[in-house]
């Protein structure tokens, strides 16, 4: 499994470049919950500097009409290894404008099955980022069936809620409190969930750092593992890469690691059995 870093800073990219195949960055105003955002010009410079690395752009916003001209312009000139996308507008533009981008379906909680990917595959979508909302055995099955690139978040905080509302600012405004939206977390059931408000949205993350180190061996058919560097200590991040590469467990090396997410099986339940 090749490893990609979704960095939080340029320094994190430099520090971990030897360990990764490539990077994932966001684009100003067109991405959400991507710690490292840049303009297309900045991206070009980074691609020159890290010329031997793959560069993926995460365009994971739900676009509104006013975003479309900016999006179209960007897609027309962007030259990257691939684009991780959420909104199907990107597929349509890629086809309509004959752009030939390597599109990777990254619809967070929707990518729980091989079948919809097969539909998108007919429209030039080349791969998918598997959702973590399923048991690892389902992930294995999908990775065996997908005729294309597969990716999986293997380390770091994982988004479990996204809204286009400004949830923290709205609250502070209503209660006339100072509007400092930095470093916030929700407390519930003895856990703390990071809540991040950005210009266009609010995201809530898992209370734990997803840790796929112990299970990575079993998921070896997946092409790329994604490491999210958000709020990960720089020294520890290098340990993370070392362990992931050796397919060794990180268990016990930090307080808030959890691999439970890979063993959770959600079921479709209905009230009673009324067939």
């Amino acid at each position: 499994m090749k490893l990609l870093l979704q960095p939080t800073s340029y320094e994190q990219m430099v520090a971990n470049q030897a360990a990764v195949t490539g990077f994932i960055a966001g684009i100003d105003d067109l991405s959400v919950n991507v710690s490292f955002m840049c303009s297309d010009e900045e991206l070009k410079k980074l691609m020159t500097q890290f010329a031997d690395k793959e560069f993926f752009i995460c365009l994971n916003k739900n676009y509104q009409n006013h975003d479309l001209p900016v999006l179209e312009k960007l897609l027309s000139k962007l030259k990257v290894t691939g684009i991780l996308f959420y909104d199907l507008a990107i597929v349509h533009l890629n086809n309509q404008l004959n752009l030939q981008h390597n599109l990777i379906w990254h619809a967070e909680h929707f990518t729980t099955s091989f079948y919809p990917f097969a539909v998108l595959n007919d429209y030039q979508v080349k791969g998918m980022v598997l959702s973590l909302d399923m048991h690892y055995q389902e992930m294995i099955k999908i990775s065996e069936e997908v005729n294309g690139i597969t990716m999986l978040p293997v380390f770091g905080y994982y988004p479990i809620f996204n809204s286009i509302r400004h949830l923290a600012s709205n609250y502070f405004t209503y209660f006339k409190q100072p509007k400092d939206i930095s470093n916030l977390s929700l407390a519930v059931n003895d856990v703390r969930l990071p809540i991040i408000e950005e210009k266009n949205n609010t995201t809530i993350l898992t209370s734990f750092l997803v840790d796929g180190s112990a299970i990575i061996k079993k998921l070896n058919k997946i092409d790329y593992g994604i490491v999210n560097g958000y709020q990960v200590d720089s020294k520890f991040l290098s340990v993370v890469f070392e362990k992931l590469k050796k397919q060794e467990s990180l268990k016990g090396m930090a307080d808030n690691l959890s691999d439970e997410i890979f063993y959770q099986q959600t079921t479709y339940r209905i009230k009673g059995d009324r067939k």
């Binding site: 676009y63 479309l68 909104d87 199907l88 507008a89 597929v91």
Partner: peptide, 9 residues
């Protein structure tokens, strides 16, 4: 949320 996604559907 946008007409391009709508056109794809």
């Amino acid at each position: 949320m946008n007409y391009t996604a709508a056109l794809f559907w």
